[in-house]
């Protein structure tokens, strides 16, 4: 009973909305990256070819911003991934208290970024804030730092707060994967007498290919376009040391009226994200084969 047109018609409603309201503006932004424009409706958009991209390549601030995205990616792969995975495992385990944990672990994403930013600013506050007090109490004075006010640490502090905030959200992706591993599989390996480690390597991880794929694509694209948390925690400072591509995009376009440069940054973010997504897709397909 498969109608020939049914597949098209099932895709169409969402696709039509998406094409009009998302894809068209996105395509428009990509196209505008080859023009110079000051953001005034009556001013002409002047075609400049690759000039905006060349300007980007010549300015070390943009390298630093993309390097900062790289730091978010490193944080995501090394810490956020195992963290979210463990949290996902905990909340679906059904151990005592897992319902409370389920609610608590998600709280950071629910509380507005204003609250989160203010709280972490207080914790990381160098003049008597609890983190430095703790370090000093443990006689680790040398480790106490001006976390958000030092060009060496500010970006890492934001990377850390970002992971803390979004662990609860990524946890859900792994939880969804974990609950859908059929009971029979566990039963069958239990009969085989497989050890814990073996079960983890041969059953759990392979069954979660899609969850890992989702995490990898989301974490990397999220790192490339991270904006809100940087903007609210440091504003890109001190002296631009924690700027990310998206904060520079915002400043160039919306503060300094250089929309061409802004769109070129946006396009680069899009291209890097797309390349990475395709890479992950291919890797997952290799694993399946």
């Amino acid at each position: 009973m498969k109608s020939k047109y049914a597949p098209f018609l099932m895709v169409l409603p969402l696709l039509a909305l998406y094409l009009l309201f998302v894809f068209y503006p996105v395509a428009n932004a990509v196209l505008s990256s080859f023009f110079s424009w000051n953001g005034i409706a009556s001013s002409p958009q002047v075609f400049v070819g690759l000039r905006n991209y060349i300007d980007l390549a010549k300015d070390p601030r943009y390298f630093r911003a993309f390097a900062n995205s790289g730091r978010f990616i490193i944080g995501s792969l090394l810490f956020l991934m195992p963290l979210s995975f463990a949290l996902g495992g905990i909340i679906v385990s059904g151990v005592r208290g897992s319902r409370v944990m389920k609610a608590a672990y998600f709280l950071p994403v629910v509380l507005s970024l204003t609250a989160i930013s203010l709280m972490w600013r207080s914790i990381l506050y160098p003049n008597g804030g609890p983190l430095n007090a703790l370090l000093e109490g443990m006689n680790l004075d040398r480790l106490a730092q001006n976390w958000l006010g030092d060009v060496r640490f500010a970006i890492w502090a934001v990377v850390f707060v970002n992971m803390w905030t979004y662990a609860g959200l990524n946890m859900l992706i792994f939880a969804a994967g974990l609950v859908s591993i059929p009971q029979e599989i566990w039963d069958s390996v239990a009969i085989d007498g497989a050890g814990k480690v073996a079960r983890f390597w041969y059953i759990t991880l392979p069954s979660l290919k899609e969850s890992f794929k989702a995490f990898l694509v989301l974490a990397v694209s999220g790192s490339l376009k991270v904006f809100d948390i940087v903007f609210i925690m440091t504003g890109g400072g001190p002296n631009g040391s924690s700027d990310t591509p998206a904060t520079l995009l915002y400043f160039q376009a919306f503060r300094f009226n250089r929309f061409g440069i802004g769109n070129a940054i946006g396009t680069l973010i899009l291209l890097f994200g797309l390349a990475w997504a395709l890479l992950v897709n291919r890797a997952v397909r290799k694993l399946e084969a």
Binding site: P238, N239, F251
Partner: peptide, 20 residues
């Protein structure tokens, strides 16, 4: 130059941060 105030403030912030 629209960004001059922001650049000035950022450079001062960098100086206070000990970076420059």
């Amino acid at each position: 130059l629209p960004q001059m105030v922001e650049v000035t403030r950022n450079a001062i912030q960098g100086m206070f941060a000990g970076a420059i």
